[in-house]
Design a protein around this nucleic acid. Structure first.
Lengths: 181, 181
DNA sequence: TAACGCATGTAATACGTTACATGATTCT
DNA sequence: AGAATCATGTAACGTATTACATGCGTTA
């Protein structure tokens, strides 16, 4: 028994930042938003993590300031060294297989609820999923229209397919809980 | 634009422990293994987190020692208060929607690689997925045979379906990278 | 009897979140 | 003028990982 499983997540923050900057230069504020917008379902980082990390990356020569704007904003871009580092990480570093999802924990623990509670629980999850899915579809339309490049499209596409599987599964769980009431 | 997204993960550790103990009493050592075995794709915790948390939960009256064994081992079981707390958390607490997965970050960043590198990368991911999937299937057989209860079965089932979607997607990415070489 | 697995804990360090703190620009 | 948003940073706290530390029981 036992699924292969779980290790640590080294410093994906660093490589996420480099990757996002490789897609387009940004200041820290924009980066913080882009993090949630595009990488949100995979990783999260607040500005209080991002600014210090940008400083470290600058010192390490992996990003550089390519412009200064209003309100003391500084636009960072990835350097060649930074680009090389992401590639090295992707190609050579053993991937951390750790996953963390409170949602998955809850779905696992749903068996502890009484059938009626469980049905309500899964109905709530389905509602959330539908909303989430709708916003992902809207985003896809938007991308379709404005033809942006980057790894976003394929991953979005996969996310939508995974949503389909989950939607179906949640419906089954609701039915099963209903039947057990 | 922007996917709804991301919040913190409060104290799922606590509820994961309560949930696992509700399934079956265990000592800290077993719990550590069961964490990875059953909840591994959703959450990870090492023994250095689990022992202190068990102590806190005991103080709070949510778990209790129900037996002592060899080598000073203490078997914990969840109390009624503990069971109530998990239910409350499941039914009333706003779910944290944060996800964290280094794998997803890597899949997103794959566009930074040259087609040949990218193909190799996705082939590696596919190989990992196949192995992972095989061990999940083996586990399902095992469960089938020994008829264990708990939320494990349905979640496993969903995991297998998600694997199918990912396998298909990875094959497409490999093909696309191949074509671009 | 040596090695391995069971079993429990603590300490140091790193990572992440929330809260604090400040100020400029734009919009109403 | 006031509110909202852009923009940057630090501090305190909580959580997670790695390393340290110890010892019993079983098996080869």
């Amino acid at each position: 028994m036992s699924i292969p499983t779980c290790q640590t997540w080294d410093i994906s923050l660093r490589h996420s930042i480099l990757g996002l900057l490789a897609l387009a230069p940004s200041n820290g504020y924009e980066l913080t938003r882009r993090f949630d917008d595009s990488l949100g379902h995979a990783w999260h980082a607040g500005h209080s993590q991002i600014y210090p990390e940008l400083a470290k990356l600058e010192q390490a020569g992996m990003v550089e300031v390519v412009g200064e704007g209003a309100r003391g904003s500084r636009t960072f871009a990835v350097t060649d060294a930074g680009r090389a580092e992401v590639r090295r990480w992707m190609a050579e570093e053993e991937p951390g297989r750790g996953q963390r999802s409170e949602t998955a924990v809850r779905w696992f623990l749903a068996f502890l609820l009484e059938p009626a509670e469980r049905r309500a629980f899964f109905e709530g999850e389905l509602a959330y999923l539908e909303a989430h899915d709708a916003s992902m579809r809207a985003l896809r339309e938007e991308l379709e229209a404005s033809g942006r490049r980057g790894g976003f499209r394929p991953v979005l596409e996969m996310g939508l397919r995974v949503n389909d599987v989950m939607r179906e599964w949640l419906r089954e769980q609701i039915q099963a809980a209903s039947a057990a009431e």
